[in-house]
Design a protein around this nucleic acid. Structure first.
Lengths: 239, 239
DNA sequence: CGTCGGGTTGAGTCCATTCAACTTCGGTGG
DNA sequence: CCACCGAAGTTGAATGGACTCAACCCGACG
C-alpha cells in the first residue's frame, strides 16, 4: 500500500522495518478524488496531511485576473501537504490532475514522530527540503532558461521522479495534463505552450501522444535542459 | 547577538528561555564575509549551517551561458543553508550581497536538537518550510504576474521580512543591490529591470535612491502586488 | 451526425531583449 | 584641484519572443 512512500523516503537513507511499521500506523484511512477536485483547499487548516498513493496532483495559486500558476507537481509517494503540519494554514490549493488515491496522516501522530522517532522525523523533514530544492530549480527555469529548455527540464525531472516510484515504462511515462494545464506549469499562454511542445517533438527528442510522453533521446533532452539531478538528493546516506 | 534569530523563530511560536539557551549553545563561532564572497559554495558538503546575523545574502544558480538566477534573498536571522543539514550536498551557491556577519551551527548539534528538543526542532523545520512557501510565491510571481507586479511583490515581501528583524526605518529599508543584481532576482535583462523600477518610481509608490527603498504608498504597492502575507506564517501559535 | 474539448496554425500586436550610446557619480591619481 | 576613470544608471532604436485573437482540425461521445 505505502510502497511508493517507502521507495521515496528509502532513496535518501535506509528505512528500518520499525520505521515502516510506524509510518503504516501513522498514515491511515484513505479516500479517492476525481480529476479536477481539490485535495486540499486554499485557506484551510487541515488537521492531517495527505499522502498521494496513486495519481497526479499539483499545488497552485490563482490571481485576481483568474490566472493560475502551478507551483509543484506531486507524484505517487509524495506527502502533498506535509508542510501544513507546521505551517497550519494552507496558502495555496492542491488539485487532482488525474484520479487520485490518497491516505491521511493525523498531525498529532506526526508530532509524536518528531518526539519519539527522530530519525524518521528527519526523513520527513528531508522530504519537505527536497520539495524546496525542486522549487528552486523551477525558479531558475522560469527566470533564466529558454521556454524549450524549461520544458525539457520539467520532462527530465518528472521522468526521474516517476522512475523512483516505478511509474515509468521504459523511456515513457503517463502524463495526463492538457496543454492548458502545462501552460499553467510553465507560466505560458496555451498557444505558445503548444509551439514549445511542438518544437521538442519536431527535433525528435520526445513524442507526446495520448497523454504519454516518450523520451527518444535522453542525452539530447538532458543537454537542452542542462539537467543535473543533484537537487533531487537521490542517494542513500545517513541523515 | 542572536536577537534576529529569536525574533524570527519567535514570531511563529513562543520560544522558551531554555530553547534560546540551547540555540545560543548550538550556534557558535562566527566570521565575516565581504560583498561578493560566497558564504557557501555550490557542490560543497558543509558540516555546519550558517546563520546570518547581519547583512544580506542570496542563494543562486549559474547556467552554462553564464546567466545567473537568485532563488532567494536572505535577511538577518535567516539560517541560509539549514537545508544542507539533511540535503548534505549544496546544489546551489550562497553569496553575500552586502558585508555579512554570520555564525555557524554544527550539524551534529542540530542532530542532537532533533533528538532532545523536538519542539525546537519543529521550529527549525518550520523555518525551512517558510522558505519553501516563499519559493512558491516567487514561482507564481515569475509565471503569472506582470514584471511590475512581481517587483512590487518583492518589495512588499522584503519590507515585511525586514520589519520582523527590526531592519526597517519607518517605511524605508536599506537594499544594497545594483539593478543588475535585481535583474538576477526577477529574471530580467538589466535594461528592462531599469524600466520596471522606473515605472514604480514614476507613479510615486516608491522612491529608490542610494540603496534605500522608501514605500510612499503601501496600499497602492500592495494592490499592484496583490500582496497577501499569509505565506510568511507571521502569527504565533503552537507548532 | 452534431457538438464539444483539446490541439494546431496564422497574423498582428505588444513586451522584453540586445546593442549601443550617453549620463551621473564617487573615487583616485596627477 | 580637477581630470580622468570605472561602475552603475538611464535612454533610444531595432530585433525577436510571447501574447492575443481567430480560425480550423480532429477524435470522443451523446
Amino acid at each position: 500500500m505505502l510502497e511508493s512512500l517507502y521507495l521515496q523516503l528509502g532513496q535518501h537513507d535506509t528505512l528500518s522495518d520499525d520505521e515502516k511499521a510506524l509510518l503504516a500506523q501513522t498514515v491511515c484511512f484513505g479516500r479517492e478524488f476525481e480529476k479536477g477536485q481539490d485535495l486540499v483547499a486554499v485557506g484551510s487548516r487541515p488537521s492531517y496531511s495527505t499522502m498521494l498513493l496513486d495519481g497526479l496532483a499539483a499545488r497552485y495559486k490563482v490571481l485576481e485576473d483568474g490566472g493560475r500558476q502551478f507551483t509543484s507537481l506531486q507524484v505517487p509517494g509524495d506527502f502533498v501537504d506535509l508542510h501544513a503540519f507546521l505551517l497550519k494554514t494552507m496558502d495555496h490549493g492542491i488539485v487532482a490532475l488525474a484520479p487520485c488515491r490518497v491516505m491521511f496522516a493525523d498531525h498529532n501522530k506526526l508530532k509524536a514522530i518528531t518526539e519519539q522517532a527522530p530519525h524518521l522525523a528527519r526523513l520527513l523533514w528531508l522530504d519537505t527540503l527536497v520539495d524546496g530544492a525542486i522549487h528552486r530549480e523551477w525558479i531558475v527555469a522560469m527566470g533564466r532558461r529558454s521556454k524549450t529548455s524549461h520544458l525539457a527540464h520539467l520532462i527530465c525531472e518528472l521522468f526521474v521522479r516517476l522512475q523512483v516510484v516505478k511509474r515509468t515504462d521504459g523511456m515513457s511515462f503517463h502524463l495526463p495534463l492538457s496543454q492548458a494545464e502545462m501552460a499553467d506549469v510553465l507560466g505560458l499562454s496555451v498557444v505558445h505552450m503548444n509551439r514549445v511542445i511542438g518544437g521538442l517533438k519536431k527535433i525528435k527528442v520526445i513524442t507526446w501522444t495520448n497523454h504519454t510522453v516518450t523520451i527518444l533521446d535522453w542525452e539530447q533532452l538532458a543537454g537542452i535542459a542542462e539537467f543535473d539531478p543533484t537537487y533531487l538528493s537521490m542517494n542513500s546516506e545517513p541523515r
